[in-house]
Computed example of a mutant assay.
Amino acid sequence: MKYRKHIAVVLLAIGSLLLATGCRDSRTIPTEHGRPQITIMVGGLEKVIYLPAMLTEKLGFFKANDIDVKLLGEQSGATAETALLTGDVQAVVGFYDHTIDLQAKDQCLKTVVQFADVPGEVELVSKQDADTIKSPKDFKGRNLGVTSLGSSTDFLTQALAGQEGLGTSDYTRVKVGAGQTFIAGMNHNGIDAGMTTDPTVAKMVTSGDAKILVDMRNEQGTRAALGGLYPAASLYMRCETVTSHPDIVQKLADAFVQTLRWIKTHTPEEIAAKMPAQYAGGDPKLYVKSITDSITMFNGDGLMKPEGAQNVLRILGQYSRNVSPVKDHIDLNATYTNEFAAKAQGVRQP
C-alpha cells in the first residue's frame, strides 16, 4: 500500500511539473476551436527587413491558411532566439545565421522559409566621422554600434572588420539596439559608425546625420562586402517542432510565401499602405523611400540558396567564437529546409 501511495505521489508530481512547463515547450502548439495558435517573435517588427511578418498578418494570409498568429516584437535577434529555446514562442522571424551559431552550441534550429538572400543591413558612419572613416579598414580604435553582442549585426561587423585584418581587440562593439536608440547613440557620440536597417537608414541619411559606408540591401553590395550572398531574414523554428508539426509548419510557409509573392507584384506605396501607420513615424514619404531602398532584398519564393548558406558558414567560421572551433562539423542541411517553401509554390493566392 505504501508503495502504491509513493508511486501516486511521484506521478502527481510529474503531472504537476508537465502542467507547469508544458506552456513553455515550443514543441507543443496549442489549438483553439481547431486552429493552431502560434506565437512568433520578430527581431524588430518595424524593421523593413522583417516587413513580411506584419504584412502577412495585414493581408490576412495567416487566417486564410487556418492559423492564428500572434506577433511579438524584440529588437535583438539574440534575445528572440533565447525566447524560442526556452519555449516562450514557437517560431522566430530573424537572421538565418542564428541556426548555424546555435548548432555550434548543440542546439537545433531550422529555417523553414527564407525571406531574403542578403542582410538588408547598412553600415552607417556619423557625419562628424565621415571624413576619417572611409571604409572598414578605418574601424581601428572606433566605437561601432551593433544591436547586441552575439547578434547578427555583431557577426557582420566582425566580418567587415576582419576582412581588413582587424580583430575585435582593435575596436569596441557597442550595444545600441535599433531605431531611436541607435539614432541617439550616433547623434550623441556614443558610436562613430554602426550597423542598422531601414527605416532608420532612410531617416539618418535624409537628415544628414549619417552617411552610408557599406550597403548590403542588394546582391551587388552584399557580394562586394561579404564575398557572396548572405541569406538573412527568415522564419526559423526548433527542429523538434518542425518534425512534430509538419502540417502547421506548412500552413506558416504557405502564408509567408504568398506574402513574398505579393511583394513582388506590388509597389512600395501599396506595401506601405498595408502596414501599421505608426511604422511611418509621422513621415509617410520617408517610409515609402525606406521600403523602396530595401524591397529588392526579398526573394519572392521563400527558398534558401545553398550558395548563400555556405557563405554564411564560411563567415561565421572565421568570425564567430562559437562556430570557429567546430566549423568543419557543422551540418548545413540541418539548419534549413526548402521542403515547405517549395510545396508552397503551388498554393494559389487568396
Rank of each mutant, 00 (worst) to 15 (best):
R142G: 06
A210Y: 08
R27P: 01
T157V: 00
V174A: 09
A210M: 10
D331A: 13
G194D: 10
G190N: 09
S244G: 00
I29T: 02
N311Q: 13
L260D: 10
A202G: 09
Y287G: 08
G162K: 01
V214L: 12
H98T: 09
V42K: 11
I14F: 13
L260Y: 08
M216N: 06
G150N: 04
S290L: 09
M304C: 04
M186C: 10
G87A: 11
T153G: 09
I330W: 13
L51E: 13
T267D: 07
P350R: 00
G120T: 03
S126Y: 03
V176F: 12
G308I: 02
L12S: 14
H266T: 01
I248M: 06
V146I: 08
E57A: 05
L166H: 06
A83S: 12
P30D: 10
P325V: 01
A280V: 03
T200P: 13
E307W: 02
K175Y: 01
A233D: 07
D254S: 04
K289V: 04
N218M: 02
T267M: 05
H6D: 11
Q345Y: 08
T168L: 10
P52W: 05
I212L: 03
Y279P: 09
L213C: 07
E32V: 05
N299W: 04
V112N: 02
M195P: 01
L316A: 04
A334N: 06
